[in-house]
Amino acid sequence: MRQRNKRTVIAMATVGLALGLLLPGGPAAAQAHARGAHPAPNGATSADSADGHAADRHVRGVVVSGAPLHVRARATTTARVLSTLDPFEEVELSCQAKGGRVEGNNIWYRLHGEPGWVSARFVHNYTPVQWC
């Protein structure tokens, strides 16, 4: 029974740490603020027009994998690797689409401003991502 309690405490601490890293105000937000990046209200981007409609809407996200994340040519793990993203690297996402499953998740994000797709399993988006 003592072993189970120890595992529970470790699991809860891990979840707490992960939430602290992912929620607004966590280390990723602090790093963005230090670089001078400021989130727009309600997830709006600089591409939004004055009336709130997006001409080329994209949202920010952060890589939440423990290792470099492959950027692929298509939304599948069998597609050619174009580049990699570092853990906790901030990215801009253009849209989402269904693709190959990665640990039960079949959603992929298209990167904004550069070619490639990343599995949504390893990217936390700060605001909802539109469908492609």
Rank of each mutant, 00 (worst) to 15 (best):
P27L: 14
A28L: 12
A29P: 00
A29S: 15
A30R: 14
A30Y: 05
A32Q: 12
A34S: 15
A34Q: 15
A34E: 15
R35M: 13
R35K: 14
R35A: 15
R35N: 12
G36Q: 04
H38F: 00
H38T: 08
P39Q: 04
A40H: 07
A40L: 14
A40S: 08
P41M: 03
P41V: 05
N42T: 07
G43M: 03
A44H: 13
A44W: 03
A44L: 13
T45K: 01
T45C: 14
T45H: 06
A47M: 04
A47C: 02
A47S: 12
D48A: 07
S49I: 07
S49Q: 08
S49E: 08
A50R: 08
A50D: 07
D51N: 15
D51V: 10
G52L: 06
G52A: 10
A54E: 12
A54P: 11
A55K: 05
D56W: 03
R57Q: 13
R57L: 09
R57S: 13
H58C: 10
V59L: 01
R60W: 12
R60T: 12
R60I: 10
G61T: 06
G61S: 02
G61V: 09
V62T: 15
V62G: 12
V63S: 03
V64I: 14
V64F: 00
V64P: 00
S65M: 02
S65I: 01
S65K: 05
G66Y: 00
A67M: 01
P68C: 08
P68Q: 11
P68W: 00
H70E: 14
H70K: 11
V71S: 05
R72A: 04
R72Q: 02
R72S: 02
A73P: 01
A73D: 10
A73N: 04
A73C: 05
R74A: 12
A75V: 07
A75I: 05
A75P: 07
A75K: 08
A75R: 07
T76S: 05
T76H: 01
T77N: 02
T78Y: 00
T78K: 04
